[in-house]
Structures are given as C-alpha cells and as structure tokens.
Design a protein around this nucleic acid. Structure first.
Lengths: 119, 119
DNA sequence: ATTATTTATCGGTAAATTGCGATTAACGAT
DNA sequence: ATCGTTAATCGCAATTTACCGATAAATAAT
C-alpha cells in the first residue's frame, strides 16, 4: 500500500508484478490453459476425466494440476480415491484484474467497444 | 487395463491456444513485464535506458528484449549504433483480446462490480 | 585509422521445466 | 486381508530458461 518510493528509478520488482508474472507462468503452457477450460465447461472435475481429454500421461497431467494448484487457480478436493478439481474463482478474478490493469497501463488498447473504466 | 473409452474429441491444442500460451510465457517473467511498462511510459526507448532501469546486466536485458521481440510484443528499430524499442500495439491488442476471451470463457469472473457480459 | 559507444551474440553454468514410466498411498469393494 | 482403481509422487533424461562476463559488430567521432 504505502510503499516508500525513494528513487524514481526503482529497479526492484513489486510483489504485485511478481505475482502477475507467476500467474502468467501458470498460463504459459497450452496444457494448463486447456485444463482450466475443461474445468470451466464441466462441473465434474475428476482428475481422470481431465487426463482422458489431455494428450499427456496421467503423471504429466497431475504435475500440471499441481502447478495450477500452486498459484491458486484451481482447488483440489479429495473425494474417496479420486480428486475433484475445480476453478478457484477468487484467484481467477484477481488474475483477470491483474491482466486487465496491465494491458490498460499499456494505453494502447482500449476494450474496443466495451469502454469500461478500468482503474 | 483401463477400459475407459478414449474420447475422440480434440486432444490437440489449437494454434490459438498455443499462441496464447506463448504470449503468457513472454509475460511470465517480472523483468519482461517491467520492460513493457517502461516502454509504455516513454514513447520509445533506446536499449541503454531500459538497461539502466533494470536490475540485470546488459546482456540479460538484451535477451529479454529478444524474447519480447520474438512473440511480437515489441519492435526494435536500429538507429545508428543504438536500437530503439517500442511496443507493438497490434500484438498487444491481440494479446489482450486473447486473455479477455480466455477469462470470459471461465465464466466465473465478470469485471468485478461491472457485471457487463463480455462477448 | 583509431577510439569510444552501443547492443547483439557467444559460451558457460546453474536451475527449472517437461515429459514419461514406475511406484506408492489411499480408498472402496469383495 | 486382498484386489482393483485412482491419483500423487519419485526418479530420470532431455530440453529450456536465466543469468553473467566476454566478445563481436556496427556506428560516430576524432
């Protein structure tokens, strides 16, 4: 909040920036984006169902799920021998907000037609 | 063995998805996001000015610039012994569009208070 | 031609990522 | 207890990333 700006040429990265980059990293693999899309279109989020729809092995998918869980984009709930995954809307909201603010800061691109006051 | 019926639906990733992941990858490092922000503040920027504002060596910054150039987020113009970098608004627009569509597809997140539906 | 300046690239190391098969752990059912 | 099923984790190899110092290439000025 009240971060002390002592030098205009601040070289360090703010926690916000680091967080956004971390979220981008989680989205930097087609498989992980795909997983999020699968979870969005289905309410049944059993791990096996995801694996069936991915071109990777079970262990690889599990690793991608772990990465998505790490940044908080998804939540895994153990249900018997299975694990039920679902999107974490709270983190998704923050992520969307972060990206929106980022692009808004670039000033180049309006929302073309949808002129919301982003700020 | 697993007698699961293999879903014949597209396991492959669409070019659009791969492109979006690639853009996310370019944004997955705080330094690279920072570079974009620096370029947004000033209309154009010679490489050295960017280096001065980054906590990395000249060669490292140059490498990040190369990555941003690779995905088309920035353009580098040689100007004498210097190189002048600037944002590529066209790619930025497409990137923003891609992220907007992605998050819209998640359905979870309106624009926080602004409950307009993004088409 | 020499020198200084600027930036891209080379070479190297350390760490992280990606993918897989094999294994383990946890659970339900027999 | 034993047997399947499910999913996380381990171990491993190949690749990529990140960072740096050193060097090269290009230009401007002397």
């Amino acid at each position: 909040m009240s971060s002390r700006v002592q030098n205009e040429t601040q070289k360090e990265f703010t926690p916000d920036l680091i967080l956004l980059a971390d979220l981008a990293k989680a989205l930097s693999h087609p498989g992980r984006i795909r997983i999020l899309q699968i979870l969005a279109e289905r309410q049944s989020c059993i791990c096996g169902d995801i694996v069936d729809r991915m071109p990777f092995s079970q262990s690889t998918v599990s690793q991608h799920l772990k990465e998505l869980k790490r940044v908080g984009l998804i939540i895994g709930e153990i249900d018997g021998p299975r694990t039920c995954y679902c999107l974490d809307n709270k983190t998704l909201n923050r992520a969307q907000e972060g990206f929106l603010r980022l692009f808004a800061g670039f000033g180049c691109c309006g929302l073309e037609g949808k002129t919301n006051e982003l700020e």
